[in-house]
Design a binder for these strands. Structure first.
Length: 483
DNA sequence: ATGTAC
């Protein structure tokens, strides 16, 4: 019998995989999805991965999956799992290779019509100052000592050196600095790969877009977030580049040995983990925090260059252009948090892999200016359609440890997209729709074609229906920078 | 996602 046949429908957008389907599950699985999205998740093996995660020591509540779930390394992408801090494990596969990949949104006071007239020039200038693509080198040229400082102290250190604004910090998750970051736990190889990559976009689904606010769903929240229809904003989606990738690689190897030594039984070797309280577990969290700080600095540095690009094109200072940071949030992290589980407060490590923190109104982690509205959630879509700004909800705190989706999710493999979509033709097609594309390689562009992705609005609607997050605004691309 | 294997 297929796993899909054993899934129980809780309501229109929530499905449970009961513990009894596989011996050894410590908690049930819960998937937030429409029936159609659930069936897609079953096809690529991601549902099996939800089940596998439920075996992990110390997992509490349920092994969760968001509507954009798909197959990933060990854990599904779109998975959320909370492990007890005292007797649970931390797993690098539950974070993913791109540690602290995330999204930020920068406002402007410019109108769509003003920017449209200069969009080619703006896109060219952005592409000139922001390196993109695999192996791209940045313009900052941090030395070993400076990189170490950045890993330990995060965005405040970069800002102290004149890159970024002091006021940005309030609007970055963890105020721009992840606690417990220890560069001593990061390998020399990771240092080597990360050196020179601060301020670079990367490749794949990473992008920088100039967007316009196309539709507002919640006027009060949009006003509170400083958004209005027709406004031009900048969205940056990027991660920790080679440094985070190396940290993940290093600790997967280290934990593979831990699992063997401690005889931890796992349904999939890719779920390698170590007790949160063990030296390997805490070392990983300390190195992960460094990679997360790197990712925050990377996005902060690109924001700095984007502000300069706007300034040189529009002949006004970034301050005059109102280029303040709305928010920066990651969708690949494991974080120590306190949550109510089955009526009891528990200290847990919440693994979010392709899932975004979406805290409810009133939570102290939400910036004071937004606290009555809930945490801003930034959901990137595909380059031809739209992206979303959402806000966290109280119901999501209990149902998903304050988490929601992270994006559209593929409907075509890279290979399939490459075969069916012609890069140059796609670029022309987008250009006709008023979207300027600056792409490093045409092959990459076809892999990222809009038709290769699901409609992100469908994903976001499920999250709203499941009570995890609520729509605030929809953003339409005007110019796209792609690796 | 990623100096797409050491």
């Amino acid at each position: 019998m297929s796993l899909l046949d054993e899934v129980e429908r809780l309501d229109e957008f929530r499905w449970r995989i009961p513990r009894r389907v596989r011996e050894g599950m410590r908690v049930p699985g819960v998937v937030f999805a429409s029936r159609q999205l659930l069936e897609q998740a079953a096809l690529d093996g991601a549902l099996e991965q939800v089940v596998n995660v439920a075996y992990l020591p110390g997992i509490v509540g349920a092994s969760l999956a968001m509507p954009d779930i798909h197959w990933g390394y060990g854990f599904p992408i779109g998975g959320v799992a909370a492990m007890d801090r005292a007797d649970g494990v931390v797993s690098p596969g539950g974070v993913g290779y791109d540690i602290s990949c995330g999204v930020r949104l920068v406002r402007s006071c410019l109108q769509q019509s003003e920017v449209k007239a200069r969009i080619h020039e703006l896109a060219q200038e952005l592409a000139r100052v922001i390196p993109k693509g695999l192996g791209a080198k940045g313009r900052l040229g941090l030395n070993r000592r400076e990189l170490e400082d950045v890993l330990r102290h995060g965005a405040p250190r970069l800002i102290a050196g004149g890159i970024g604004w002091e006021e940005d910090l309030e609007y970055i998750e963890e105020q721009g600095a992840h606690r417990g970051a220890d560069p001593g736990k990061v390998s020399e190889r990771a240092f080597e790969r990360g050196a020179g990559q601060v301020g670079t976009l990367g490749s794949g689904n990473h992008f920088l877009e100039v967007q316009a606010v196309q539709e507002v769903y919640d006027q009060e929240a949009a006003r509170g977030f400083g958004l209005f229809e027709g406004q031009v904003v900048v969205m940056i989606h990027s991660g920790s580049r080679g440094l985070g990738h190396q940290v993940a690689t290093d600790y997967i190897k280290i934990m593979d040995r831990v699992v063997q030594r401690k005889h931890i039984s796992l349904p999939d070797r890719q779920l390698v983990c170590a007790p949160v309280e063990s030296s390997e577990g805490s070392d990983y969290l300390a190195a992960m925090a460094c990679a997360a700080n790197f990712a925050l600095c990377n996005r902060e540095a690109m924001t700095h260059f984007a502000r300069q690009a706007f300034s040189s094109v529009f002949g006004r200072s970034p301050q005059e252009l109102g280029m303040s940071l709305l928010y920066d949030v990651s969708h690949n992290l494991a974080k120590p948090e306190r949550h109510e589980v089955e009526g009891r407060e528990r200290d847990v490590v919440v693994h979010r892999k392709g899932a975004t923190r979406a805290f409810a109104p009133g939570r102290p982690e939400v910036p004071a200016a937004y606290r009555h509205l809930g945490q801003p959630v930034l959901i990137p879509g595909d380059m031809g359609r739209y992206s979303f700004v959402l806000t966290g909800l109280e119901s999501g705190m209990v149902r998903s440890f304050g988490s929601t989706c992270h994006g559209a999710g593929r409907r075509m493999s890279r290979h399939q997209a490459k075969r069916t979509v012609h890069g140059e033709e796609l670029k022309r097609r987008l250009q006709e729709q008023g979207i300027v594309v600056m792409a490093g390689r045409m092959q990459e562009l076809s892999e990222e074609a809009p038709e290769a992705y699901k409609d992100v609005e469908e994903i976001v609607e499920v999250c709203e229906g499941a009570g995890l997050s609520k729509r605030v605004a929809r953003l339409k691309p005007m110019a796209v920078l792609k690796g």
